[in-house]
Write a protein that binds this DNA or RNA. Structure first.
Lengths: 202, 202
DNA sequence: TTGATAAAAGATAAGCCTATCTTTTAAGGA
DNA sequence: TCCTTAAAAGATAGGCTTATCTTTTATCAA
């Protein structure tokens, strides 16, 4: 019997991402994805139940890429000092976003696609959300501002995403806005302790 | 001869907004909008050149609503102290967003719809963009952080939008996160002078 | 009252979309 | 080598979409 091509699922996800990057998530169709991969349109349904599942697959893979970063793993190490973990979280997000300039864009595109998507995504992600714990620890320790964590999380995500977009579309050069400048902006918002300059070069 | 119904353009825009609120901007079609208004689909083309123009119309109207707020007009008064103008800008954005809970959502939905939309929108809004001047003045006066203004602008927009969304979907009650708490978060990010508590009740 | 005129509705072409069903193809085991 | 079986391609139904073209309707002016 014939076996499934195990690389094909990846290829389909890659093609979907490519289309989102170039035309936005609303432009996604199984027809276009199939054409991009070079397979028949119906073939996609052997790897994904429907279009919704395909989009969820892209979303989840992108989230995992972020979470499985070595730097991000380190952030989640509860033995390290909390201020260091919070700061390194910013650095990890920044490094990831710069290394994967379209990742945050793809995530936000899928999130914003359908009104019902955000709820669904909460379900998909919740449970195994280690960032939530980090924020709670940070507040407890008096490092982070005591406020619903969705607000600082949104702040971090959108500011970094915007920065990467600015660099990407040539609005300014990469070095015009350094990590220090960007993280000072973010830190000023989310934290209630002074900016930890000493952690910059570690 | 027959005259155009001058209220119809408004009705079409309203219907478009309603659909965006309920199903997201990707769900917009002239068919659905027409059905919602109770007119024929082709009738829409008498008021808007094409679907793109319709979406631009919605976008521009929403931006205008925000800019034409009395509070926002006050913010742009260059005779007032700059720290007051900056702070009142936050208050104006907050009040507007709370009074029009879906306005920022609609704006961001349209912005994120097509990859080519952002550029177009910059063109549409720039030129008559008084907020840019406010930010420049703020930096010059040593009130605001010296950084590309798109970053603090994104910060303000996304944090307030998120807050309104949280309230809207019952994530927390309106009074759980006060304007003071929210504006302290934002101010900590964008400003380099202490939070102006004295401006809270004016 | 009638005629000119523009708005509104109706009809339609051409295309894309999803999801399913059917047919072909190819790989591995017997 | 041949047969089984699942993957892949093909075909298709049914629906929605945009934009244009044609026909009807209603209003204003003469």
């Amino acid at each position: 019997m014939k076996k499934k091509d195990l690389t094909k699922e990846t290829k389909i996800l890659d093609a979907t991402v490519a289309i989102i990057i170039n035309y936005g998530a609303s432009a996604i169709s199984t027809t276009k994805v199939a054409k991009h991969v070079g397979i028949s349109q119906s073939n996609i349904y052997l790897y994904f139940e429907d279009k919704q599942a395909l989009l969820e697959g892209v979303y989840l893979r992108e989230i995992s890429r972020l979470e499985e970063t070595p730097e991000m793993k380190l952030v989640m190490d509860a033995d390290r000092p909390i201020i260091e973990r919070c700061f390194n979280y910013l650095k990890a997000m920044y490094d990831f976003a710069m290394a994967n300039p379209y990742s945050l864009f793809v995530i936000s595109q899928i999130k914003g696609l359908s009104k019902s998507f955000p709820d669904l995504i909460e379900k998909l992600v919740s449970g195994h959300n280690p960032v939530a714990t980090l924020f709670e620890d940070g507040v407890q320790a008096g490092v982070l501002r005591s406020i619903d964590r969705s607000l600082p999380m949104t702040l971090i995500f959108s500011v970094i995403q915007r920065h990467v977009e600015n660099v990407q579309n040539g609005s300014y050069a990469k070095n015009v806005v350094s990590f220090e400048e960007l993280s000072r902006l973010i830190w000023g918002g989310i934290a209630i302790v002074p900016y930890p300059s000493h952690l910059l070069h570690s």
